[in-house]
């Protein structure tokens, strides 16, 4: 019938679009400042920028804060705000970025100050580049980074020391996600999802391996509402693989309704059974995981088309009825 109605989605009633001077990749909502979000540019060069914006859902307005934007060496591979509210005395907000190093920035009222730079290499000034990181929301002094040198590094950011560094995989580690205070999982070019427990660093549990050996797994999302579930995506695949840590190696569901490769996944911050995925087919799909999988596969609940490959997806924990997607040089906030 009619599918040329994408324009109608750009209505101001249910979405807001921000056009950046640069292509956008990294993106983060601030949990403690519900109206704040950060955008990282993707310029294939040394000089990149991180912008801080404020979003007001009531008026559907998006305002950039030029005084809060700052230079970042190389494109940030991930941005993340401090997962908890800061102490009431301070109005500042911490932002972490990953790239050549893990960096912490203090986002203040009118400025952003670099706080610290984390380098885990004792022998060299250069540490292996970071593909991603995750901030432990239960113990926020802990950040785990994943690197192309096959390791994951757990930092104590208050003491700026390495808590531990694990050779996590056989190949590059592409993403890391915390489950509990001391438990994290990672995905890698070696095609496996592994769970680590800091209390027993000698062992890791492989809970999934990609069907064709060595198909890299690119992203990982742990369901914070129900820690039994996590989701991962494969290279050049339209599948979102849902894993249950209780049944290792066999995914509980594979969501296969994207018409192109999937680029990003995010669990609903407020629901244990909803997940959003976005991909090259320009679509963002929201899925509800049924209790019983149907033989014909799972259909998404609803969809949104951005008209362009969606590269990034974030679901606001502070305002769970808003999802942000990034495509080309645009960032769009969508009402769920």
């Amino acid at each position: 019938m009619d599918n040329s109605t994408q324009e109608s989605h750009l209505r101001s009633e249910n979405s807001v679009t921000y056009e950046s001077p640069y292509p956008i990749y990294a993106m983060a909502f601030s949990p403690s400042h519900p109206h704040r979000l950060a955008l990282g540019s993707f310029i294939e060069d040394y000089t990149n920028r991180v912008h801080i914006l404020s979003f007001h859902p009531d008026t559907l307005s998006l305002n950039p804060h030029p005084s809060l934007s700052f230079d970042h060496p190389y494109p940030p591979t991930k941005l993340m705000f401090h997962p908890r509210k800061p102490s009431p005395s301070s109005s500042s907000d911490l932002l972490a970025t990953s790239g050549d190093y893990l960096r912490l920035w203090d986002v203040r009222e009118n400025s952003v100050e670099p706080l610290s730079l984390f380098n885990n290499s004792k022998t060299s000034e250069f540490c292996a580049p970071l593909t991603s990181f995750d901030w432990n929301d239960i113990e926020p002094n802990r950040i785990g980074t994943s690197s192309i040198d096959t390791t994951c590094t757990i930092w104590d950011i208050e003491r700026t020391v390495v808590e531990t560094q694990l050779i996590a995989h056989d190949k590059e580690v592409y993403d890391i996600a915390w489950g509990e205070a001391r438990v994290f999982a990672s995905v890698s070019a070696d095609g496996s999802v592994r769970i680590f427990d800091l209390r027993d660093k000698e062992h890791s549990t492989i809970i999934y391996e990609s069907p064709h050996p060595d198909t890299p797994l690119l992203r990982l999302a742990w369901n914070k509402q129900d820690l039994r579930y996590m989701a991962t995506i494969l290279m050049d695949s339209n599948k979102v693989v849902i894993l249950d840590i209780r049944s290792p190696t066999t995914p509980v569901a594979e969501l296969e309704r994207h018409r192109g490769s999937v680029n990003a996944i995010a669990w609903a911050p407020h629901s244990s059974t909803h997940i959003c995925s976005a991909g090259d087919d320009t679509q963002a799909l929201i899925w509800e995981l049924p209790t019983l999988a149907s033989p014909t596969g799972i259909d998404p609940m609803c969809m949104y088309s951005a008209g362009c490959e969606i590269n990034q997806l974030q679901w606001s924990a502070a305002q769970p009825d808003w999802i942000a997607v990034a495509f080309a040089n645009k960032m769009q906030l969508l009402k769920v």
Binding site: Y46, P129, R219, S261, D280, N311
Partner: peptide
């Protein structure tokens, strides 16, 4: 496919 994602994961590290 996954053009930007691959760049972030495969090429950006090489830039560093």
């Amino acid at each position: 496919s996954q053009k930007l994602l691959k760049k972030v994961l495969f090429e950006v590290p090489q830039m560093h």
